[in-house]
Amino acid sequence: MTKLLQTAMDAVAVGSLYALIALGYTMVYGVLKFINFAHSDIFVLGAWSSFAMAAALGWTKAGATPPLLGGFAILLASMAFCAAAGIAIERFAYRPLRGAPRLNVLITAIGVSLLLQNVGQLPFVFGTQPQRMPQLLPDRVLASVAGVDLRLVDLIGAGTAVALMLGLEALVFRTKLGRAMRAVSWDVKTAALMGIPVDRVVAFTFGLGSALAAAAGLLYAMKYPGLNQPAHATWVLLGLKAFVAAVVGGIGNIRGAMLGGLLIGAVELFGAAYFSPHLRDLYVFTLLILVLLYRPAGLLGRAAVEKV
């Protein structure tokens, strides 16, 4: 019982973070029809820029206690910073390739990813040493159920992730801007004929996806404070699993990304807890293979006919 409850809580916490990252993959795919492989590095940038800000404020010293809302201030600042980075990447790396074959854009995305990883390792940026993220969010044990501690920081983490997803859902399905995003995602040319400034909508989409990834980066570091260096394989794997979440849910589908994230989190953590923790990656990628075999468009995706 204890194990079940603990695993379920972890699955929701980690799954909602996968979902936040998956949203960025899926939104960019929606508007530009390519996989932004640099997206997982924005997630890393979110975690590391939060750490850098906390360090600059002296909150990483032993015994330092950040102010109550300090964590939220850093969350917003790193979201804004990563949004700006995402918009800059789109402007200078991807926009010049609008209309180029998709393979070129894909290769560029891999290039941007390598660039971010390697710039991140420079000594005057984040360096190559692992760091320990301080606890920036208020934390205490709220309740104990069947031997499992319900911690405030976990609640805030999951709550923030869910609030961001609900906010995104409202933005996309209830606002004029969201309607424009959906129109661009359906057909860029027709969207332009509606008077929608396509470039601006694409830039906004990148900024939004990057901000969500930044939030995921900080929240992830709250749960797992050991911060590996920016090019470490663990980051790559996390990004890859979030991408799997987007594909499992149906790439291009926003609700699919949320569902896929939670599903991947559940499969990974329940598998690790009840079968073998060594095979956690295997569960995720097995799920991917099964979905691709039986529902290639993803759980909520529609079977798309490639437009020429």
Binding site: R179, R182, A183, W186, D187, T190, L193, G195
Partner: peptide, 13 residues
Amino acid sequence: VQAPEGRGIFPNM
């Protein structure tokens, strides 16, 4: 303003 060939409506909206 153009009403394009093939109508160009957004079928999912």
